[in-house]
């Protein structure tokens, strides 16, 4: 019992269950899930689907925070990814073509990769505090997204692109599949290999880890890059869900939601301890009603 009580996931889970209980009493239809046209429908499905972008970002954020860092730029990266993909799709002669959409998505992810390397460079090589290093991109990023969209809200009408945010696969929203895949990947990499241990040790004491022979610089580069790519994926899901890239509002404040989710989920902001499953619970508990 005491092991259960001291588990960092204990309180988040209790709060989530309590919220479910309140909802069950207040809204009797809350847990109803029905099948329409072969898709699942219901409040619970909506919560998971709407929470998916934040969840995807929270997974990346968890790893960054585990290294005692923070990534404020994810919201701006969402906007940039959305802007790039939509402008490519709009610029192509055939927006509905699957090939076009694949090119757009891959370009957006590559740009995010570069932005993540930039954050990693500032943190790992220049040695700037993470909160400030990522503040640069948070401030400039929306400006860059505005440059890409030329100040317009780009509305795309592309069936394959729309699938990302509002499509269904085997009755479950595609966005949820994406989030689950990223979660599985992150969990596999960090819990089934030594990577997670390395990340935690960099968070606990960067200097000691370096002296123990860890390439903390490379690790920092990879967590910030991973976080940026997660942000771009979330940005694509958001943009596809709205079928429009809005440089000003896509992913606005999502960095704060994600950080909150990570913290509620029991990851210490002082680094070193994390639980990658935590954001799942936190996410679903904070996007209520």
């Amino acid at each position: 019992m005491s092991r259960v009580l001291t588990n960092r996931l204990f309180w988040p889970v209790v709060v989530l269950l309590a919220l479910f209980a309140v909802n069950l009493v207040a809204f009797p239809g809350f847990f109803a899930i029905e099948v329409k046209n072969g898709h699942l429908f219901g409040s619970l499905v909506d919560i998971v689907r709407n929470g998916a972008p934040t969840l995807i970002i929270a997974i990346g954020m968890t790893l960054v925070i585990a290294t005692r860092g923070i990534d404020l730029s994810v919201g701006a990266i969402c906007a940039i990814a959305g802007a790039i993909s939509c402008s490519i799709i709009l610029g192509s002669p055939d927006p509905g073509n699957v090939g076009t959409v694949v090119v757009a998505v891959i370009t957006a992810l590559l740009v995010a990769l570069v932005l993540g390397l930039w954050n990693g460079f500032l943190v790992a090589v220049i040695g700037v505090q993470p909160i400030i290093a990522t503040l640069v991109l948070m401030t400039a990023g929306r400006g860059i997204a505005m440059l890409i969209t030329e100040g317009q809200i780009l509305t795309v009408n592309s069936a394959p692109f729309k699938t990302l945010g509002s499509g269904f696969l085997f009755g479950i929203p595609v966005a949820v599949w994406i989030a689950a895949a990223i979660f599985a990947l992150a969990a596999l990499l960090t819990r089934r290999t030594a990577l997670g241990l390395f990340i935690e040790s960099v968070g606990i004491n960067p200097e000691a880890s370096r002296q123990a022979g860890l390439r903390s610089r490379g690790l920092l580069f990879s967590v910030y890059t991973f976080s940026a790519v997660c942000a771009a994926i979330a940005g694509l899901v958001l943009t596809s869900n709205q079928t429009a890239a809005d440089a000003n509002n896509t992913g606005l404040f999502i960095e704060l939601d994600a950080i909150l989710a990570v913290v509620i989920g029991g990851t210490s902001l002082a680094g070193g301890r994390y639980s990658s499953s935590a954001p799942w619970w936190a996410r679903s508990s904070s996007r209520r009603s």
Partner: peptide
Amino acid sequence: WWTRIFIGA
């Protein structure tokens, strides 16, 4: 929006 980019830089 150049303002924001300048501020960031």
